[in-house]
Amino acid sequence: MSRRLDEFWVTMLTQDFLNRRRTWMATLARADRSAIEAQLSAEPALPDHTRLRGPEAGLVMVRGRMGGSGAPFNLGEMTVTRCTIRNARGQIGHAYIAGRDGQKAELAAALDAALQDPEDGAGLEARVIAPLAEALVQADNTIRAEAEATRVDFFTLATMRS
């Protein structure tokens, strides 16, 4: 048990782990609940968990910058749902996701905990998070393609220049 914990902390402290965790949290925040559930359908059940906080709906005040790059100002609020759980293996998972889907927040928190597992986490990441992230990239690429098709090259008429 203690070796497992040591390994866990070494992993926890690495920047690589932090980046991966930020990526899976962002992916879970953006993916539809149905898409996450579909990815999980072929997986063994996630460890049981108890709720430590939430799921509860609240607000985040979104800030912008003056002129896009200057000092911050408060733009307006958005709804967000958060949840924190501890699973049967003792891992704690957090989720903050846009919108008011409590079930999705709880699922994302359970996954955040399971993905931290030193043994099973990486596999789960490859099988569940990677396809979700890929689908989100594809969705972005569709937008980029639609935008690209509306790109224009305005040309100024010679008579207007003179």
């Binding site: 509860e56 005040m61 800030r63 910058r65 896009g68 967000v80 937008i143």
Partner: peptide, 17 residues
């Protein structure tokens, strides 16, 4: 609703246009 946090300023230069 309770307010959980304020966001970091959004980066509109990184917008998906």
């Amino acid at each position: 609703l309770p307010r959980f946090a304020s966001s970091l300023p959004v980066e509109t230069s990184a917008m998906l246009i």
